[in-house]
Each structure stands twice: as structure tokens, then as C-alpha cells.
Amino acid sequence: MAAGGDHGSPDSYRSPLASRYASPEMCFVFSDRYKFRTWRQLWLWLAEAEQTLGLPITDEQIQEMKSNLENIDFKMAAEEEKRLRHDVMAHVHTFGHCCPKAAGIIHLGATSCYVGDNTDLIILRNALDLLLPKLARVISRLADFAKERASLPTLGFTHFQPAQLTTVGKRCCLWIQDLCMDLQNLKRVRDDLRFRGVKGTTGTQASFLQLFEGDDHKVEQLDKMVTEKAGFKRAFIITGQTYTRKVDIEVLSVLASLGASVHKICTDIRLLANLKEMEEPFEKQQIGSSAMPYKRNPMRSERCCSLARHLMTLVMDPLQTASVQWFERTLDDSANRRICLAEAFLTADTILNTLQNISEGLVVYPKVIERRIRQELPFMATENIIMAMVKAGGSRQDCHEKIRVLSQQAASVVKQEGGDNDLIERIQVDAYFSPIHSQLDHLLDPSSFTGRASQQVQRFLEEEVYPLLKPYESVMKVKAELCL
């Protein structure tokens, strides 16, 4: 049975990233139509530049190519590739079939990587351009969430054990800070992308030097003109047959890092959902379990974690691919890159769409948070109580021993009897502590235990987050809708 299948058929496997999760716009960027249309555009740009620099290419040939950029006979191309065992030459023939007058000058002087690699770089750039505003929107939604809850005390956790208090907004800023680093890295790697350009079979530009009869300047002009037509500021000066596969490492490393950030955020949300302090959106008709109707599973956060793990592992592909590119190139890269580049971007696209949807509907339960604080705060307040007693004339050592005994009794009630923490009640009825009984409410005010959390939130948002989001103001209103 021949390899390949009808990918629109229910009898043929289709990647869930495309069929179930990723956005239509990201799927289109990695589609065959987008790819092969870009090949034709690159052939047109090459012909236009070659004509401008004096090669015998007519206006009629150029116009014929322009008129057929979208006229792609995919069936013919597939048949040609089956016959020739070469995808680029299959599309040269297919393009030439609908451009008979231009057929002889299509791909003039070029090698397969002229269309293959340059198209990949265009796709990487455009895919990054799709991700950047999506990530900015996630940051914006979380920034709104953090600002609104900047002063809401909550129990902090280290080692997932109760620690000092923080605020809900401050905790959210930990998430935002990681995503801001990801946004900066995505922008950097996007701006650092260079075009492969017009380089020939081993990167020496020998074929173009021959076409222009040894004119170095025209060869350099050709490279520059096509690079500018493709919208790049610069091209690699040095290439082998391909652009260095280190570029793929750079791009997928940034995406993998984004995956790590999203995994951490969504894990926190899942843990908070278990504590009943916070939940992701839950639709009115949504079913959490087929057997347990009360369940409210954090399905979206779980999906993000599941896909983020996949995204983090994909960076190993370009690392290994770059390491086995012998001399000017081997074909070890080809099949692998067809999979890992598309999957990385479709996965990143999915987790950003999902995280935006989550961040637009996060639900906080202040009463649950308050109750958990009441359970733990008495123990945390013991040092403040000791200091207040010393100020009232008591002995630190005597007070410490009193607190120690009462704390152990209260802990026994919590752990052995399943009761509430009654340390404060014990202190309130103990005559030894009568000098500070009137101060206990103040000493137990949760806001006095959150330090500068709310001020940190305000400063972080104003100095770091809002300036970073400013270039994306025009796209901030787009909502994230999930079908599944």
C-alpha cells in the first residue's frame, strides 16, 4: 500500500493539533497551500530580480507567473513527485505547466533550498508574528487579574506546605514575570531571523556568478533584492546548502521555554482548584465526569500541561538535527523538520489560546482563602504575639514557653481530632496574655502579614508589564474561544 493518505478522510490519521486544537490561522501558515504558494512567490521574486539585473526574462513571463501564483494543481504535483521522487522539481514542473512561456526560467540558477529553506524562514517569521500578540493578550488578562487582587491576602506555599502570606495578585505576578520573559525572547528570536537568500547549491553562489558572467556586484544585488522582497532586513552571508540548523534550535528553545512557563502556571491553577481557592472557567453544560456528576475538573489547565510537556520535548529534535548536518548538509534534517517545526508552533498556539481562555474567566473564592488563612495564621502570628507581650512588660522566655504549650495543644486538636485551630481562643482565655487581649485582632490582621506584596504588584505592572504590552494595544480586544 502506498504511503500517505487522504487526510480529510475519517479513515486516515490526522494530527489532533490540526484537527482538534490549533487555530485556523496557525494551521494555514503550515498548510501545503501556504507552503507551495510561497515557493511560487519566491520563484517570481527571483525572476523579477534577475530581470532587473539584466537576464533575458520578459515582462510577459513575469506576468504569467504572477497570474498563476494561486493556480496550484495539487493532484498534478503529487503525481509528479511520485514520478520524480523530488518535491521541488515536482512543483517546478507543475508551475511550468500553467506558465508555459515562463517554464524555462522558473528556478533559474537556484537549488531546492532556495524555495525550501527560504519558505521555512518566512513561515517561522509569520508563525512567530501570530504567537506574539496571543502571548501579549494572556499577559494582559493576567495583569488585569493581578491588579484587581493585588491586596487580597492568601496563604503562600513553599514545598506545598503553608508559608508566609502573600497576595493573590502577587502570586499571579510570578506567572506574568515568566511570560514577559517569554514574550521578550519570542520577539528577540523573531527579529534575529535572517533570510537564507540566493546562495546556490553549497552556499557559494557559483551558479549565479556564472549567470551574471562573473559580476560579483550583481550577485550581491540579486541576494539583497530577493531578501528585501521577502520582507527581511538581512540575509546570511555564510550558508551551506541550507541555512544553519542552529536557527531551528533557537526558535524551538524559546517555544519550549514558553511551554515550561505555561505548565507551571496551569499546575498552580490545578492545585488551587483542589484547594477550592480558584477555578478555571466551567461552562453551564460542561460535564466533569461521566460517573461523578459533582466533579469540576480543571480540564483546560490539564490540557495545557499535557501539550506543554510535548512542546518542551520537541527542542531535542533540532538539537540532534543540527549535530548531524555533515559538511554542507545531509538530508537527516528533512523529514524531522517537516514534523517538529509545525508541531512546535501548533502546540504553542494551542496552549496560548487555551491559557487566554482560562485567564479571561478565572474565578476566585475569597471566603475559602480566608478560612485557610484562619487555619494557619495563628501559628504564624506567634512571633508577633511574643513581641507584643514583651512590649507590655512580659518575659520573652516565659511567653515563648506559654505559646509553645498552647500551640501544641491547638495542633493536637487540628491533627488528632480534625478540629479547627483554636490557638487564639486559648490565648484569649489565658490570664497571662490579658495585657494584649485587646491587640489580638490587630495582630491577626492578614494584611499585616503580606509585606509589600501589593506595592510590588503595582510597581511591576507599571514599570515592566504595561510598557512591554504597549506595541500590542491594537490587538488586545480579541477574545479566545474554545470549541473543545
Rank of each mutant, 00 (worst) to 15 (best):
4 G>L: 13
5 G>E: 10
19 S>Q: 10
24 P>T: 12
24 P>K: 11
34 Y>C: 08
35 K>P: 03
38 T>L: 07
42 L>H: 00
43 W>Y: 06
46 L>V: 09
47 A>T: 10
48 E>D: 08
54 G>R: 05
65 M>I: 02
65 M>G: 15
67 S>E: 08
70 E>F: 14
75 K>P: 07
79 E>C: 10
84 L>T: 06
85 R>I: 04
86 H>G: 02
87 D>Q: 02
91 H>Q: 11
92 V>T: 14
93 H>N: 14
97 H>A: 08
100 P>H: 15
101 K>R: 12
102 A>M: 03
102 A>S: 10
106 I>C: 07
106 I>Q: 01
110 A>K: 00
117 D>W: 00
120 D>C: 04
128 L>C: 08
133 P>G: 07
135 L>F: 07
136 A>R: 07
137 R>T: 10
140 S>D: 06
141 R>N: 14
141 R>F: 10
141 R>K: 14
143 A>S: 08
143 A>Q: 12
147 K>I: 12
151 S>Q: 15
151 S>M: 09
153 P>F: 06
155 L>D: 09
157 F>D: 00
157 F>Y: 08
158 T>E: 01
159 H>D: 00
164 Q>R: 03
167 T>P: 00
167 T>C: 07
171 R>C: 02
172 C>N: 09
173 C>N: 00
181 M>Y: 05
184 Q>H: 13
187 K>Y: 12
196 R>A: 05
206 A>G: 09
210 Q>C: 10
212 F>G: 07
221 Q>S: 10
224 K>A: 07
227 T>E: 14
231 G>S: 06
235 A>Q: 14
236 F>H: 08
243 Y>K: 00
244 T>R: 01
246 K>D: 00
255 L>T: 11
259 G>A: 15
260 A>I: 04
266 C>Q: 14
276 K>L: 06
279 E>S: 06
279 E>C: 03
280 E>D: 11
286 Q>L: 02
287 I>H: 09
287 I>S: 08
288 G>E: 02
288 G>Y: 00
297 N>E: 00
304 C>H: 13
305 C>M: 03
306 S>I: 01
307 L>F: 14
308 A>W: 01
309 R>G: 04
309 R>H: 09
309 R>P: 00
311 L>E: 02
313 T>D: 00
313 T>S: 14
321 T>R: 02
322 A>G: 09
325 Q>Y: 01
331 L>E: 01
337 R>Y: 04
338 R>D: 01
341 L>R: 10
342 A>G: 11
343 E>Q: 12
353 N>K: 08
353 N>F: 01
353 N>L: 14
354 T>L: 10
359 S>H: 15
361 G>W: 00
365 Y>V: 11
373 I>V: 11
380 M>P: 01
380 M>K: 08
380 M>Y: 02
386 I>Y: 05
386 I>F: 02
391 K>E: 13
393 G>E: 09
394 G>D: 09
394 G>F: 12
395 S>W: 06
397 Q>T: 11
403 I>D: 01
410 A>L: 07
411 A>W: 06
412 S>D: 03
413 V>A: 09
414 V>M: 13
414 V>D: 01
425 E>I: 06
428 Q>R: 15
438 S>Y: 08
440 L>G: 05
441 D>N: 02
441 D>W: 04
448 S>C: 15
454 S>M: 07
457 V>H: 03
457 V>D: 07
460 F>H: 09
463 E>S: 11
468 L>H: 14
471 P>W: 14
475 V>T: 13
477 K>P: 14
